[in-house]
């Protein structure tokens, strides 16, 4: 019973390393295709050929990019993420605090949105076709149809500017109490929950309905089992695979995709860091961020796949 799962985990670890390498190479070539290098971008309008050449030499960027990349990969295996081209700071220092911030925001958002989304999705499926179901459906779509930056800006205008209840910025480093924490996180978490919940709600509802309509559940319903009981006892376990997949996909958004929330609430997270890195062509930093996003994503989907297998004995 346990061995397929262990096999899967072992296989996934190997696969993860290969995937990471694959991603690293792809990103390297993609970044190389982008016009301009660090020296040119840093000099901006002042990028005359000799200035660029001088700066390149000073930054030790005059050896071939591919060679530098290979060194970086080599060092990665010793746990060294390298040094930023742009400001010479160790990448682990640049990422460290901001990754923690991102994880904090992601976990608070997940802790709030996942239970709510699953409850709404499952109850909507149980009460399919009722007024409640309709309301949930329309509400979820309406909520994601409004662009994220608009939700965020609107909530700042209402809660910070007019009502003055919450701070307009989320300065994570100034939090001293639980109350303060709630205040600082309130708006970013609400905005993000709006974005990620819709997918989970709709997928949960659809997956549960799908299993409900498989014939054996219908048989049971015909035999007089209650709908709610059927959902919880039979449909839900069978629908768990797709549901967990939807949850994993939604949560994977919370690491790299929260750029708008980080920008509007001035929250120093890792998504903005990666954007900075791309716009300054800071390859080691781009790579390190990409590795983190990739790892996070692989972790989430591996968990999703494991849950799917465990919940559907036939998959073993």
């Amino acid at each position: 019973m346990n061995s397929p799962i262990l096999n899967l985990v072992a296989e996934r670890i190997v696969v993860a390393v290969v995937t990471l390498l694959f991603v690293a190479f792809t990103i390297f070539f993609a970044t190389e295709m982008l016009p301009g290098d660090v020296a040119e971008i840093l000099l901006g309008q002042a990028a005359t050929p000799e200035a660029v050449a001088g700066l390149r030499a000073a930054m030790n960027l005059d050896q071939p990019a591919f060679l530098r990349f290979i060194y970086w990969i080599g060092n990665l295996f010793t746990g060294d993420l390298g040094v930023s081209y742009v400001n010479k700071m160790p990448i682990s220092d640049l990422i460290g605090g901001r990754l923690v911030n991102s994880l904090k925001l992601a976990s608070v958002t997940a802790a709030i949105s996942v239970p709510i989304a699953l409850t709404l999705g499952i109850t909507a499926a149980i009460l399919r076709g009722t007024f409640y179901d309709r309301i949930v459906s329309i509400f979820t779509i309406a909520v994601i149809s409004v662009p994220e930056f608009m939700v965020a800006t609107l909530s700042v205008i209402v809660f910070a500017v007019y009502l003055g209840w919450l701070p307009a910025l989320s300065m994570a480093n100034e939090v001293t109490s639980i109350g303060g924490l709630l205040k600082v996180f309130a708006m970013p978490v609400i905005t993000l929950s709006f974005v990620i919940s819709a997918q989970m709600i709709r997928m949960t509802r659809a997956a549960v309905l799908e299993t409900l309509s498989t014939a054996y559940v219908e048989m049971a319903l015909l035999k007089g089992a209650s709908r709610r009981r059927m959902v919880l006892r039979h449909a839900l376990p069978n629908a768990l695979g797709p549901i967990v997949n939807a949850v994993a996909l939604s949560l994977s958004y919370l690491l790299g995709g929260v750029i708008i929330v980080e920008t509007i609430f001035n929250y120093p997270g890792i998504a903005k860091l990666m954007l900075d890195a791309v716009s300054t062509r800071d390859l080691p930093l781009i790579q390190s961020c990409a590795m983190i996003f990739c790892l996070g994503y692989l972790l989430l989907i591996t968990i999703a796949d494991l849950v799917a297998i465990v919940s559907n004995p036939r998959l073993q």
């Binding site: 800006t153 910070a160 500017v161 307009a168 920008t263 001035n266």
Partner: peptide, 18 residues
């Protein structure tokens, strides 16, 4: 610090955060 979103920057002044 910097707030790259223009309306966020203005709102932060209006709310008294900056």
């Amino acid at each position: 610090f910097a707030i790259s979103d223009e309306s966020a920057r203005m709102n932060a002044v209006l709310s008294g955060d900056i």
